[in-house]
Amino acid sequence: MTAHLRSPHRVALLTGVALVAVWLLGMGWAVRDAALDPTAGGPLFAVFKPGLTETEMVHRIVTAGGRPMRQTWISSVWVVDGEDGLAGALKAHDVLGTYGELPIGFQLAGCFAGADSRASAMLSLRP
């Protein structure tokens, strides 16, 4: 009888693992596809590896020819301004990715976002 009880749990576990794997692959594709072209200029979001100090991130921005505008509420994400080609220069300085402003309203995140003007400003490219 014990083997019979394990079978439904195994199916549920495998289904859950498969769903998470498909979701992770889809999100990885979406994030990679959303990255800016290397020829893009600022303002843009620059995403750094977690664990870098603020000084290290600013140094990489300036070395790449960018102007740090502000750090976002996510400590490894900065709003950076600069000339065309900044996205590629930042990538050459170990930035994980560069992204433009969100193409959809922040309010679509619903109750998880606490959508108001302050929340919207946190993910804006404006200083």
Rank of each mutant, 00 (worst) to 15 (best):
Phe48Trp: 10
Val22Ser: 06
Ser7Glu: 09
Thr39Gln: 09
Val62His: 05
Thr15Ala: 11
Leu14Ala: 02
Ala30Asp: 06
Ala64Glu: 02
Trp29Phe: 15
Val47Asp: 01
Pro8Gln: 06
Ala34Ser: 15
Ala46Asn: 12
Ser7His: 11
Val58Asn: 02
Ala21Asp: 10
Leu36Ile: 10
Leu14Phe: 01
Val11Ser: 05
Arg10Ser: 06
Glu54Gln: 14
Arg6Pro: 04
Ala40Asn: 10
Ala30Phe: 00
Val31Asp: 11
Ala64Met: 09
Arg67Asp: 12
Val58Thr: 12
Ala35His: 14
Arg60Pro: 12
Leu13Gly: 03
Val20Cys: 09
Arg10Tyr: 04
Leu14Val: 04
Ala40Arg: 14
Leu14Trp: 02
Pro8Asp: 07
Arg6His: 10
Gly41Pro: 07
Val58Met: 12
Val62Met: 03
Phe45Cys: 09
Gly51Thr: 13
Ala30Gln: 05
His59Ser: 15
Leu24Thr: 00
Arg67Leu: 12
Leu52Cys: 07
Pro38Arg: 07
Thr39Leu: 06
Asp37Glu: 13
Val47Tyr: 04
Arg60Val: 08
Arg6Lys: 13
Val20Asn: 03
Leu14Lys: 11
Leu52Gly: 08
Thr55Ile: 13
Lys49Met: 11
Ala21Leu: 14
Leu36Met: 12
Gly42Lys: 05
Thr55Lys: 13
Ser7Gly: 08
Leu36Pro: 09
Ile61Gln: 02
Ala21His: 00
Ala21Tyr: 03
Gly16Met: 04
Asp33Thr: 03
Thr15Gln: 09
Ile61His: 06
Glu54Tyr: 13
Ala40Ile: 09
Gly42Ser: 06
Val17Gly: 02
Val62Thr: 15
Ile61Met: 09
Gly41Tyr: 04
Val31Ser: 08
Gly41Glu: 10
Asp37Cys: 04
Gly41Met: 07
Gly65Met: 08
Leu44Ser: 04
Met27Gln: 12
Ala64Asn: 01
Asp33Asn: 07
Leu25Arg: 08
Gly51Tyr: 09
Asp33Arg: 04
Arg10His: 07
